[in-house]
Design a protein around this nucleic acid. Structure first.
Lengths: 192, 192
DNA sequence: TAAATTAGTATCGAATCGATACTAATAAAA
DNA sequence: TTTTATTAGTATCGATTCGATACTAATTTA
């Protein structure tokens, strides 16, 4: 029985708790909860195949009913916009409103993290990223959880030319910026 | 602006969400919430200086009033025991009941993680642990958050002999097993 | 001895969350 | 084609989290 994997779990848990506490502190001033910030961060990064309530529910690991409630609140506060999909009229599309984007902008949730990792060697961080990424991919294989990675690390993403990409799953063209957004159908290119 | 620290943040966030979702799935069958499992895991690891409501509140990043509510529920379910401290009669000491220990035992929350990290090289995991630990310590320096590390990585822990240790902060003797428990006063030995 | 601090609890209102039931749109099957 | 099943999302209920506030009791400080 190796000890290090458990240590890593505990560190991720602890860091997760700290992130959550920091979120609570920052977003609490707006009268919101951590889950609202997580939802907004997700919508800020989700591509056009993934900006739906169902997708958000999977990302957060809660039921669609629960997500529906949270979205109701975000909508009431004017932080998101909801609109009907044009081809499948059951699905609702979500996006941040201007006000929502402004709020995210002013919070800079990553700034604390930047300063915390400033003095760590780039090499060590690279190794850390690698171990975490690999763990995440294994978890996906193991229990079917989605990775929600960005397109340019996905097996379905094919480079067509200098500036155009193609998604083999949805059979649609992807712009350069789109390949840096997260997708619910993301499947990691390799285990490395 | 380095990209990797942000990537690491996103991975930790994502893994945190997955852990939380898994907790929700496992503990939900008992009609409990993730915070209850986190509390029980903490009490299972906390040393005798740290097994109080106040300490748990700091660990979770919530107010003492909130923790008081959760403890009420855990007590009603017979999962924890509360007793008064003998010297300072304001403080309440907490411990898992036999039933609580049994429940934790049967859940094995780390098993999923074990299997997810099975195929990753020991070296890479060691590097990951390093980067995460260093980040955690930096965060503590930066915003005063507690690390909740184990005694044997703490500057106050002094080895007296083969089997006995001494805490320079509380000025008390520590047994071997005690040095492997987490403490709210933990201060990491070094930044490496 | 009095005032301040500390640990914890109680109560209130707003929000999460799962479960269940529901509507509406789409897909599959007969 | 018509029926049935599935899917996306919403509505409602009850239990719980959570912060804010106010409170008690024990300890520490002045």
């Amino acid at each position: 029985m190796l000890k290090n994997p458990v240590t890593m779990l505990q560190l991720v848990e602890r860091l997760g708790n700290l992130i959550r506490a920091e979120m609570r502190r920052v977003i609490g001033q707006e009268g919101l909860q951590p889950v609202h910030l997580e939802a907004m961060l997700f919508l800020n990064q989700a591509n056009r195949f993934s900006n739906t309530p169902q997708s958000l529910a999977e990302f957060l690991g809660v039921t669609k009913g629960t997500v529906s409630q949270s979205l109701l609140l975000l909508d009431r506060r004017g932080l998101i916009e909801r609109y009907q999909d044009e081809v499948d009229r059951r699905v609702v599309r979500l996006r941040l409103s201007q006000q929502g984007e402004d709020m995210l902008e002013e919070m800079q949730p990553a700034s604390m993290w930047q300063s915390a990792t400033r003095n760590i060697s780039a090499n060590r961080i690279r190794n850390g990223v690698s171990a975490l990424r690999e763990t995440l991919y294994m978890l996906q294989n193991h229990n079917g959880a989605r990775t929600f990675g960005v397109c340019n690390t996905c097996i379905y993403c094919q480079r067509k030319s200098q500036r155009t990409h193609h998604c083999a799953l949805f059979a649609e063209r992807l712009s350069g910026p789109e390949t840096r957004l997260v997708c619910r159908e993301h499947v990691p290119k390799s285990a490395v």
